[in-house]
Design a protein around this nucleic acid. Structure first.
Lengths: 184, 184
DNA sequence: GTCTATAGCAGGATAGAC
DNA sequence: GTCTATCCTGCTATAGAC
């Protein structure tokens, strides 16, 4: 992994663990093994790094969407939920929730990039939910967009809430989402 | 309102708007009209103020629970949702989500107090959901605790997410929660 | 109780050597 | 590319006058 990639990965972990405003270039330097000033060579400003982190999530998500293009709606759902499971075991939260919390303190470029990422995720979830309903494997009422919101919000919040209430609640929510979708 | 109360209210607004790590005593001094050093008279450390803010939420929630003791489950639900509506119009997020995001950076006292608050809220929501199901006005499958988690997470996350995607999505989720509960 | 003054530290960012 | 050195700013917190 290049130094640039290591910095992005480290920043991503830190943002989702401690929040954007709580992590520093010094934190990263400890992980990557270069001095904090050297990070500015790759990312002149902190917000440049913030944008790069969101961009990385966008890229990964697009790769997942592409790789799962021809798979079943259930497989897509499982994959989507598994992203949050990984998040949870690492004691980190969703990038969207983390930056949304600090939304009114971050750079305009980060806001724009986060909107882009959120749109891509919402569209994908909505589309495989509607696909699943058409195939009669998923059952839910109302617009796909609404159901996508209900699922995404439950996952986004439970990774935060279960920091307070414990891991068990994360598994309850995770299972309930799938159960409700499959139930006639 | 006493100076102490003004400080707490101002801190509460700031924490839920910008996040715990982004607000400063100087921000508060601008709102309350005293110098930042004077705030230490009431709250020696920043975390003391953080604890007081959560305590205030706890007190308000207990007052609501008590005031709605003899009301119907639907009225309790409406009241609970209305708390988030107020949150939303003020561009602020839920205190639990805000501090959960910064969870691994805050004082142990704040963690403990947040757990206490979260437990009180979860217990209340679970209890009026089960009450409503018994009276056959609410309809849902599975444990009341699970349904309480699904509702709380949806609200907690949509006040964050709708900062990014827009107010409309907040109303969609708000309405969907009630619709799903009332639907046979 | 509120003020001024200041200590002490950490953060983002830049300059210039290597 | 990475380093050392440094600047500047903003923050929490304390001391002591009024």
């Amino acid at each position: 992994m290049t130094t640039r990639e290591q910095i992005i990965q480290s920043a991503d972990n830190l943002i989702r663990e401690k929040g954007y405003n709580a992590f520093s270039f010094f934190d990263i330097s400890n992980v990557v093994g270069i001095k904090k000033a050297s990070i500015h060579y790759y990312f002149p400003q902190k917000s440049d790094l913030g944008v790069a982190v969101i961009e990385e999530h966008l890229l990964r998500m697009k790769n997942i969407i592409d790789a799962y293009k021809d798979k079943s709606p259930v497989e897509k759902l499982d994959k989507f939920i598994s992203v949050y499971s990984k998040v949870k075991t690492e004691k980190q939260i969703c990038i969207v929730g983390s930056i949304a919390t600090d939304f009114y303190t971050v750079d305009e470029n980060m806001k724009t990039k986060l909107k882009e990422f959120t749109t891509v995720v919402l569209d994908w979830v909505r589309s495989f939910l509607e696909e699943g309903r058409k195939e009669k494997v998923f059952h839910f009422d109302g617009p796909g967009h609404t159901k996508a919101l209900m699922i995404i919000t439950s996952l986004l919040a439970i990774v935060q809430l279960s920091r307070v209430t414990g891991e068990k609640d994360f598994n309850i929510v995770k299972n309930k989402i799938k159960e409700d979708l499959l139930k006639k």
